[in-house]
Design a binder for these strands. Structure first.
Lengths: 192, 192
DNA sequence: TCATTCATGTAAGCCGTTACATGATTGT
DNA sequence: ACAATCATGTAACGGCTTACATGAATGA
């Protein structure tokens, strides 16, 4: 049994949330106004989408979770001609939780995980053409991504944009460009 | 019931393996000689580690799986003073499986997933110093990574090196450099 | 004396995806 | 007539990590 004089834990922290939960909650706070899961997904697609993207249905589960954890409130809105909506909004506790998460040092250093790269690593074991084909697809997908990012930079799609989101986007752009350049060089080398 | 004349499936494919399984199997093939799970992990650390890294114990599970699937063989080797070893080697079926995997087009385009970046995206909600601190840690970890990669490039640690592994390593280097440069610029902007 | 290396494994859990389900309305 | 949009959810499974367990030998 703990002593009466035991030091109190500094942060009570009801229970840590998952990354998805923080991401969704972060968005709720960022937006500041009630939003449905359905609309939230659209916001994601046109903003954080390139760093974090949940599956369609997962957002709904996460929102319910946040509600039960007291980090968000839910309000049902009836509509005619359309299914009802559930509007969610972050609570004060929710905003505090995001803040704590944001300011907590993480010990993760995300690796350059990539299936294509893993395959390329073993390239010697495969038909060269098959590798070149996949590398080309990789190259093209990064070219498209880069275009998307750059268009987002020129005309921010929604009210989400600020100093930090712009920095984040720059990161996406720089990395995409690095990947593209590398892929071009690699293809040239493999075709030589 | 299927007709007698039903077209045969082109590739029988016992059952798809997971990414971990292909990675381990790919390594077994690449090495060509029997190796233990324990030693395999060391090889991973000094080679593919930067694109793909399993947890300590997972390798053992995967190896057993490969054995049961007939993609690798296992041979027990008694040692004195040390625990027994299990030596694994890829079978012909195993080599074929890797080849099929390598040559199969994937429809995944891996995103720039990163916790730090997700946090930065929400940076406006947090204390600026906390963000700068974490971004600095991010910067430093990439600087260290870049150094490691570059040293690997100069002196390949083991017999794993070939044209493809070198290309893969270049990718790691280019991306790490892009991240580092971006982080430096971002820090400067945030400190201004 | 105590941590580290060698060497392998089990069991539980976590975080998330995929598949499936529903149903009215609007556009082609 | 058919697909797509709107809007939300459940259930199952999957791939991997973490925690835990074992135990002799070697080096600090």
């Amino acid at each position: 049994m703990a002593s009466e004089h035991a030091t109190q834990p500094i942060a009570p922290e009801t229970s840590r949330s998952t990354l998805s939960e923080y991401a969704v909650l972060g968005l709720l706070c960022h937006l500041g106004e009630p939003i449905s899961g359905y609309d939230l997904r659209k916001v994601i697609d046109s903003s954080v989408g390139y760093i974090w993207q949940p599956s369609k249905t997962h957002v709904y589960v996460v929102l319910r979770h946040l509600e039960h954890a007291g980090l968000a409130t839910r309000r049902e809105v009836e509509q005619r001609g359309k299914p009802d909506k559930q509007l969610y909004e972050a609570t004060a506790a929710g905003r505090a939780a995001v803040r704590t998460w944001l300011e907590r040092d993480e010990d993760v250093s995300d690796p350059d995980r990539s299936i294509l790269l893993l395959k390329l690593f073993f390239g010697a074991q495969a038909d060269r053409n098959a590798i070149v084909r996949q590398l080309t697809a990789f190259r093209d997908s990064f070219a498209r991504r880069l275009e998307t990012y750059e268009s987002m930079q020129v005309s921010p799609r929604d009210r989400v944009s600020d100093e930090f989101t712009r920095l984040t986007l720059r990161y996406g752009i720089e990395r995409a460009r690095a990947s593209l350049d590398w892929a071009d060089a690699a293809l040239e080398e493999l075709n030589r």
